[in-house]
Design a protein around this nucleic acid. Structure first.
Length: 486
DNA sequence: ATGTGC
């Protein structure tokens, strides 16, 4: 491979290896930045403010090694979606904008023992039953209304299991066992709690969805067998977050941090990067509130899992246990977490910020549950509703290259406004049904237009970068059967 | 993403 340099606006990116572009450290940058992308993906990334935001990110106090942009990166609030930053948890800072407004937005995959032929012909019944039983769209209305928010914030999925919305084995198949112990409900404002109270068990809007899929390709027979995945198997993917509660937590702390830590803010190139110094009262409080919102989001996905199991029981007339509707895994893609990483040969505690990036720990990491400790964690990467998704396995290189992270999805190609000017929801749904036998049911046609397959990058290209770099290895691919949205 | 704004 020849060395190559690309000039993009004010930035010079040097290709340091295939799919790795480095922005050298200069000026006020504390570390260099790296974009992991093919030339094609880079040409899409350069179209918005992603590179400027990535450059800004390198100025966060305590940032280690590199500011990173995953192959699905695009611009976000202050910090790119698809951004990863490992920041010293003792001397650095924590930044709400580097976690995102939708705290613990993430995906979980529920397996079944059904084959594609078992459900052909029932797609419309299934999509209607799912739509009728899983709350979708903006505003209130959840599986549980007037929910005990404080308890959910502090106990996470364990609360749901205790209430009969899941089983013990669900806990072991969720990142962090569906629970962050540092959560503190008293750090979450009354307004945030009030917004969450009637949203426990609701999909929301935007890119969130519940999709029934079939496994179409297996790339690694051994790992797929460990994960319990096989060709033509039916699986369910649930993509949603912490709804208005997490959004309010982000809003509350951004405002407070901007005012309280104005000195630090003035040193940063973008107000949207507002950060609280490690060890400060607000850093601690934000972390505890964020962990609460994380627990709420996991519980949200657990309640939706419960509804999904019930719908399958009615449509296929047998128990969910009989259909082996066990969780593969639940992964977050908007979080910060204290993790130990090796920096210059020494173990260091970092706030790893992953915003639109998925943890991708390889075999051996102590955080992994017993089922995956010897194989590496399942990483679930959802594509657009016309494309299907990937299941990867945390790669051996991820700890060295990306603080144990990879991409989180296809990544948007255009704004929601632009999408609505190019697509009409009803047409998108008709095309998917007639040309691809994909059945979509949505609360709002506008949302379908905003999420049309053509609005997204090619998920295959994104995953190729992850697989080639060894940060997340291809295990299996799925294709949509039916999809419900907000 | 979001009871989609200062």
């Amino acid at each position: 491979m020849t060395t190559k340099t690309i000039e993009i606006g004010e930035f010079t990116l040097k290709r340091v290896q295939e799919y790795v572009w480095e922005m050298p450290q200069e000026g006020d940058m504390r570390v260099p930045a790296r974009v992991l992308a093919s030339e094609e993906l880079l040409s899409e990334i350069k179209e918005d403010k992603t590179l400027t935001q990535l450059h800004n990110t390198t100025q966060l106090p305590g940032i280690q090694e590199y500011a990173l942009c995953m192959p699905d990166g695009h611009q976000g609030y202050g910090f790119p979606v698809g951004g990863v930053a490992g920041i010293d948890a003792e001397d650095g800072c924590i930044s709400p904008g580097a976690v995102g407004y939708d705290i613990n937005c993430g995906v979980r995959m529920v397996k079944t023992n059904l084959r594609y032929e078992d459900i052909q012909g029932t797609e419309e019944d299934l999509v209607n039953a799912l739509f009728a039983n899983v709350p979708t769209g903006l505003g209130g209305g959840g599986v549980v209304n007037n929910a005990p928010v404080e308890e959910i914030l502090e106990r996470g999925v364990e609360w749901a299991v205790e209430e009969g919305y899941g089983v013990e084995t669900d806990l072991a198949h969720c990142e962090d066992e569906g629970f962050r112990a540092e959560a503190d409900a008293t750090a979450v404002s009354q307004k945030a709690k009030d917004r969450g109270r009637n949203q426990a068990g609701s999909l929301g809007s935007g890119n969130h969805f519940l999709e029934v899929q079939r496994v179409t390709d297996i790339y690694d027979d051994n790992v797929a067998a460990e994960f319990g995945l096989s060709k033509d198997q039916i699986v369910v993917l649930i993509h949603c977050g912490s709804r208005g509660l997490g959004h309010q937590v982000c809003t509350d702390y951004l405002r407070d941090i901007e005012q309280t830590h104005e000195g630090l803010l003035n040193q940063l190139p973008d107000k949207e990067l507002a950060a609280a110094p490690a060890g400060s009262r607000l850093a601690e409080e934000y972390y505890r509130a964020m962990c609460g919102a994380i627990n709420f989001a996991w519980t949200n996905r657990q309640l939706i899992t419960h509804q999904t199991r019930q719908v399958f029981e009615r449509v296929f007339d047998r128990s969910w246990q009989e259909m082996e509707m066990e969780l593969l895994y639940d992964v977050s893609h908007n979080i910060a977490k204290k993790e130990l990483h090796t920096i210059d040969g020494e173990q260091k505690e970092l706030f790893v910020h992953r915003k639109g990036a998925t943890r991708a720990f390889p075999a051996g990491r102590p955080e992994l549950p017993p089922a995956y400790r010897d194989v590496g964690q399942p990483v679930i990467i959802p594509g657009s509703m016309g494309a299907g998704s990937y299941i990867l396995r945390g790669g051996e290189q991820s700890l060295d290259e990306t603080f144990g992270s990879t991409a989180h999805g296809a990544g948007r190609l255009m704004s929601r406004t632009q999408a609505k000017s190019e697509y009409w929801g009803e047409d998108v749904m008709d095309d998917l049904r007639e040309q691809n036998q994909i059945y979509v049911k949505a609360e709002s046609g506008a949302t379908v237009a905003e999420e049309a397959p053509g609005v997204y990058k090619d998920i295959d290209d994104v995953v190729t970068v992850s697989d080639t770099l060894g940060i997340g290895d291809k295990v299996a691919r799925t294709y949509p059967v039916c999809n419900i949205k907000g």
